[in-house]
């Protein structure tokens, strides 16, 4: 167990490689109850969210979810988040574990003038379990009468899982198909155990923080506080796709517009090492256009390559560009590659 944002979390249960491979080939079960849940409700809830989140919340139908970011006036990150439209005027946002209370207060502060909206920190009312991997859907389907095949990617439904009322969301942080299941904390043990039992024959294993990190990195997903933070803008993080340019004002908009017009000086890219060595968080990068910094790096269990994410000067950002990373005093060659290192094989539509 390691302390993580005030929670005691296992880094690994059966080993990072074993857990990582299980999620890629069978299924894994994650306890991600440390994530924060904040609800916004009222007739101006949409207007409030439009102001604080970068993505265009008006695009969400009831039952749909959206990846987005809370930004500073400079267009840098307060956090990334997922917005769920629960009902016409009721949204649930899921933020990262680090200092949820501060983020709650930030949201309250920045929606004070938004009109009729109540903001509630509901984090203690939800436990969150994630079932991820090619066998995830089959396993969860044995425990619910909700037709999981009818829930599309980034949509969710309300229903019972293992006899417990749940929000069943087809989302995840692994690059695999799967579900994130919100349950009342007092029932989390029961749902956890029931899923492990139901998935035993399919090879499900519990997965800790270690493999959660290697899986998300292989899938090219960002880690808040590490790849994206108050020093990096949404555009630098290569997340322009979550900027709702067509909507109105939001915090950070003018800074991001200015940065877009002036042109980016640096951007987050994927890389792989081209000589033996593993780059890690914080290592310096040396590219033709200047210095950069590695924000995530590991040897990935599935692809069996040393990969990572780094901010590099814009001149060095083209796929195939060569640069060097200082690995404990030795400059080691690396190459820019698409950040989505792993793409799951296409499965039949379901």
């Amino acid at each position: 167990m390691v302390p993580f944002a005030g929670w005691d979390m296992p880094v690994e249960y059966s080993g990072i490689v074993n857990e990582h491979m299980a999620v890629r080939t069978k299924a894994g079960l994650f306890d991600v109850s440390h994530m924060g849940e904040i609800e916004l409700a009222g007739k101006d809830a949409l207007a409030a969210l439009q102001k604080i989140a970068t993505n265009d919340v008006a695009k969400l139908a009831v039952g749909q979810a959206q990846y987005s970011a809370l930004t500073t006036p400079e267009g840098t990150f307060v956090d990334d988040l997922i917005v769920y439209r629960q009902a016409g005027d009721h949204y649930l946002v899921v933020v990262n574990a680090g200092d949820i209370e501060a983020k709650y207060k930030w949201i309250v502060e920045h929606t004070r003038d938004a009109g009729d909206v109540a903001v509630v920190n509901s984090s203690s009312r939800y436990a969150l379990l994630a079932v991820q991997g090619p066998a995830a859907k089959g396993i969860v389907q044995t425990l619910t009468s909700v037709d999981l095949g009818a829930i599309r990617y980034y949509w969710f439904a309300h229903g019972e899982v293992a006899g417990v009322r749940s929000i069943i969301s087809r989302t995840g942080y692994t690059g695999e198909d799967g579900f994130e299941i919100f349950v009342p904390p007092q029932s989390a043990d029961k749902v956890w155990t029931t899923i492990l039992e139901a998935g035993a024959d399919a090879g499900i294993v519990p997965v800790g923080l270690g493999a959660r990190d290697t899986l998300r990195l292989e899938a090219g997903m960002h880690l808040s506080g590490q790849d994206i933070d108050a020093t990096t803008t949404v555009l630098e993080a290569d997340l322009e796709w979550i900027v709702g340019w067509k909507k109105g004002e939001f915090i950070g908009r003018s800074a991001l517009e200015g940065q877009k017009a002036a042109g980016l000086r640096r951007k987050l890219v994927g890389f792989e090492m081209t000589a033996p060595g593993i780059a890690r968080h914080g290592y310096a990068a040396y590219a033709p256009g200047g210095e950069g910094i590695v924000t995530s790096g590991t040897q990935t269990p599935f692809l069996k390559k040393a990969i990572g994410l780094a901010y590099l000067p814009i001149e060095a950002n083209a796929i195939g560009s060569e640069f060097e990373i200082d690995i404990r005093g030795r400059r080691t060659p690396a190459r820019v590659v698409p950040a989505k290192f792993y793409k799951r094989p296409r499965q039949e539509k379901s």
Binding site: V17, P276, I278, P301
Partner: peptide
Amino acid sequence: LGDVVFVE
């Protein structure tokens, strides 16, 4: 250490 992936 856990799963060893690189030895120099």
